[in-house]
């Protein structure tokens, strides 16, 4: 059995990322789409941490720290937007939000 190395972590990260992307494409509830976005961010975090460990330095981890903060801010704003949208349209379903279409 081979030893667990960088590529293992990166593979997990890639799979998780694609899982999130698939969720964004396939799910139709805005909230769930948001959760899938979080999954994708986390996949990126994992890759960063793995590289940080591989290179024996902390820059990657600092980046993850930043990402987490940005993600928190993003979630706050995004959820506020969803709430505002829901108040106006009584739905959080993307198929009902097509008023931009001609």
């Amino acid at each position: 059995m081979m030893k667990v190395g960088l590529e293992h972590y990166l593979t997990v990260s890639a799979l998780l990322f694609c899982l999130g992307l698939f969720g964004v494409i396939a799910r139709r509830n805005l909230l769930v789409i948001y959760m899938c976005l979080e999954l994708m961010l986390n996949a990126a975090n994992l890759a960063f941490v793995a590289f940080s460990r591989f290179n024996n330095e902390l820059n990657g981890q600092v980046m993850v720290f930043f990402i987490v903060t940005v993600a928190a801010a993003e979630v706050a704003v995004g959820l506020a937007l969803i709430v505002a949208l829901y108040r106006k349209r009584q739905t959080a379903h993307v198929e009902d939000l097509t008023s931009m279409k001609l």
Partner: peptide, 13 residues
């Protein structure tokens, strides 16, 4: 190169 493993850790987060 699969299976090479990770280098020894010198920095800890």
């Amino acid at each position: 190169r699969p299976g090479a493993g990770l280098p020894a850790a010198t920095v800890v987060g």
